[in-house]
Write a protein that binds this DNA or RNA. Structure first.
Ligand code: ZN
Ligand code: ZN
Ligand code: ZN
Ligand code: ZN
Length: 504
DNA sequence: GTTAACGTTCCG
DNA sequence: CGGAACGTTAAC
């Protein structure tokens, strides 16, 4: 329960600051473009820490809290010790492959920058004195495994000792002395760069808990060596689906930016899924280095010879002309191999090469199928289940129906998300006020209404195709997700080691 | 540089 | 397993 509630309406061009710890909800009645963020500062460390403690006690997931909260405070303390006591604690590590001379030079530069940030005479504000004391009380009793000390801060306890000493030295600082107009601590550019890299590492790297969402992923298997990468296929542009128009109605069309979507699914129209996706034009034979290949029309001609075409091996991932393989002298393959027998019928120009086949690795062929073909096969199996007749016309009808059903399902799911109410974490606010569901007098609730009208260039601007919602994290409102489990990682621990490097 | 969209990874 | 998301590649 709250004692008071205040409503604030934001217009295009407005910037709104929400003080630390203020609970708030955001209602966005119209599609809007809103820029917002959360930040920590030295004016109310006490409340910022209280919010954190509340989140700890209520076990709020990390992904909903201020990112790298603890690491950040270690760096803050390090900066106070550096600027006011000339005692630097952060030691940037040597980069991979960096020789000693280069590292020394980088460190010298970094050292100079740090020195320029030193101002030992500067007095501390009362807020800082209180904040630093609380930070000490917070961090000191924590066991090492819960301190989350950044890797480039080798001696956290000595840093805490220094801060304690600093507090004693500055115990008599007056507010007047602290008001110089200049910032008390400074962050040298070099250090900010280091920190940014570190943050990237902390965010991207495998977190201990492993809960962090590192969604999406490379379109290339990470474990394969560079010379063995899977060549991404491109549409043939000749097959029937390739020549169709965008239906403008399927989920993927609806998501396309050119049709007013958000552009996050990034898939081609369901009606246009290629059934014979080809190797990219530049893909060349590993042996002769030539990119010679045949398109889907040329393959239909009578004189087409697959031995002269280019194939990708689904085991060793090499691109090879069968004819080039055949001409090799020292052979670990059946010289009488028949290309057509090694070929996949689910993906054009895809096979288990004669060498991999001879090595008994045919069963290791990475399954691959043209998207359009996959859908056709799926439809066919459904037709068998329901006892319907096959036939080309039937397939095409079904294709259209699947597209419609998919988009209908998507829309109905979407029905209730507009207008939306987002509690906390919206628009511009300080600290992680999101979960501070306290009724304390210090915590004041606010409801913000954001309206849009004409276009504006500042904080709140009209933008027909974008929705302001999940605010601080800049995420558009998302549909509810469906079910599933992670698929087995490709190329996991298959024996890369005994791969016959015959072609090389 | 821009646009299209593939294929992996994450999630429920 | 079937989406959903998105980094990345291919083409222009
Ligand atoms: Zn479509
Ligand atoms: Zn095609
Ligand atoms: Zn060749
Ligand atoms: Zn092979």
């Amino acid at each position: 329960q709250v004692e008071k509630c205040q409503r604030v309406e934001l217009e295009p061009g407005n910037t709104f600051f929400i003080p630390t710890g203020w609970m708030h909800a955001v209602y966005t009645p119209e599609d809007s473009l809103v820029f917002g963020g959360n930040y920590l500062h030295s004016l109310n460390i006490k409340l910022q820490l209280r919010v954190w403690e509340l989140e700890e006690k209520t076990r709020v997931k990390r992904q909903f809290r201020f990112p790298l909260f603890m690491q950040l405070h270690w760096y803050v303390l390090a900066r106070y010790a550096g600027c006011l006591m000339r005692r630097e604690h952060v030691v940037p590590p040597r980069e991979e492959g960096e020789d000693l001379a280069a590292y020394a030079e980088r460190m010298a530069e970094y050292g100079t920058e740090l020195k320029n940030s030193h101002q030992p005479g500067q007095a501390l504000t009362q807020a800082e004195l209180q904040g630093l004391r609380l930070l000490l009380q917070w961090l000191r009793p924590l066991p090492p495994n819960r301190r989350e000390v950044p890797a480039d801060l080798p001696e956290p306890d000595r840093l805490l000792d220094d801060i304690q000493e600093l507090l004693q030295e500055h115990a008599a600082d007056t507010p007047d002395a602290a008001c110089t107009g200049a910032p008390v601590i400074r962050w040298p550019a070099g250090m900010l760069k280091e920190a940014a890299g570190h943050v990237r590492q902390l965010r991207g790297g495998a977190s201990a808990g492993g809960r962090g969402r590192k969604s999406g992923g490379a379109a290339r298997p990470s474990k394969l060596p560079a010379d063995k990468f899977i060549h991404r296929r491109v549409r043939c542009r000749l097959c029937e689906p390739c020549r169709r128009q965008d239906c403008r109605e399927c989920v993927f069309c609806a998501d396309m930016v050119k049709y007013g979507g958000h552009g996050i699914l990034k898939q081609c129209c369901i009606q246009k899924q290629c059934i014979a996706c080809s190797l990219p034009a530049k893909a060349a034979c590993f042996l002769c280095r030539d990119a010679r290949k045949f398109n889907e029309v040329e393959k239909e001609e009578d004189n087409y010879d697959p031995d002269l075409d280019l194939f990708e091996c689904g085991v060793c991932w090499r691109l090879l002309h069968p004819d080039c393989v055949r001409q090799l002298e020292t052979a670990d393959f059946d010289p009488a191999f028949v290309t057509a027998d090694l070929r996949s019928d689910q993906m054009p120009n895809y096979w288990c090469c004669p060498v991999c086949h001879h090595a008994g690795k045919a069963d290791q062929l990475h399954p691959r199928i043209s998207k359009g073909l996959k859908m056709l096969l799926k439809l066919e199996s459904e037709q068998v289940e329901t006892g319907q007749a096959g036939g080309r016309a039937g397939k095409e009808n079904k294709t259209a129906m699947v597209g419609a059903a998919a988009s209908a399902g998507y829309d109905s799911d979407n029905g209730a998300d507009e207008p939306s109410i987002i509690v906390g974490d919206g628009a511009t606010s300080t600290a992680a006020a999101t979960s501070s569901a306290s009724t304390s007098a210090e915590v004041k609730p606010v409801i913000i209404k954001i309206t849009t009208s004409a276009a504006g260039t500042a904080t709140v601007a009209a933008a027909p195709n974008h929705r302001a919602s999940a605010g601080a994290r800049g995420r558009p409102a998302r549909k509810r997700r469906r079910t599933a489990k992670a698929r087995a990682a490709f190329g996991s621990d298959e024996d890369d080691s005994d791969d016959p490097d015959f072609y090389a």
